[in-house]
Computed example of a mutant assay.
Amino acid sequence: MFTVGLLAGGVLTAGVLWLLSGLFTPLPAGVRQGLIVAVALLAALRDAGKLSLRLPQNARQIPQDVLRRHLARGALQFGFELGTGVRTYVSASAPYALAVAVLLSGGSYVPALAAGLGFGAGRALTPALRRLSGDGERWDGLLARRLSGMTVLCSVLITAAACAIFP
Rank of each mutant, 00 (worst) to 15 (best):
M1L: 13
V4D: 02
G5D: 08
G5C: 13
L7C: 10
A8R: 05
G9D: 02
G10Y: 04
T13P: 02
G15S: 09
V16D: 10
L19Y: 09
L19I: 11
G22M: 06
G22C: 02
L23N: 01
T25D: 06
P28V: 14
A29V: 15
A29C: 06
A29M: 11
V31C: 07
V31P: 02
Q33S: 13
L35D: 00
I36G: 02
I36V: 15
V37M: 04
V39H: 00
A44M: 15
L45Y: 12
D47E: 11
D47A: 13
A48N: 06
A48R: 06
G49N: 07
K50G: 10
K50H: 15
K50S: 13
S52I: 15
S52L: 08
L53G: 08
R54C: 05
L55Q: 08
L55I: 13
R60Q: 14
V66I: 14
L67P: 01
L71W: 10
R73T: 14
G74S: 09
G74M: 11
A75W: 01
Q77V: 15
F78Y: 12
G79L: 06
G79F: 08
E81R: 03
T84N: 04
R87M: 07
R87L: 12
Y89D: 06
S91N: 01
A92K: 05
A94T: 01
Y96C: 05
Y96M: 04
A101K: 02
L103F: 07
L104C: 02
S105C: 07
G106V: 11
G107M: 07
P111N: 03
A112V: 12
A114E: 11
G116W: 03
G116E: 08
G118S: 06
G120V: 13
G120W: 03
G122I: 06
G122Y: 04
G122W: 02
G122R: 01
L125V: 11
R130W: 01
G134H: 00
E137I: 10
D140T: 06
D140V: 02
G141N: 05
G141W: 03
G141C: 05
L142P: 00
L142H: 13
L143F: 14
L147A: 14
G149K: 03
M150K: 00
M150S: 09
M150T: 04
T151H: 05
T151M: 10
T151I: 12
T151G: 01
L153G: 07
L153T: 11
S155R: 07
V156Q: 09
L157K: 05
L157W: 08
I158A: 14
T159S: 10
A162Y: 09
A162N: 12
A162V: 12
A162M: 12
C163Y: 12
F166K: 01
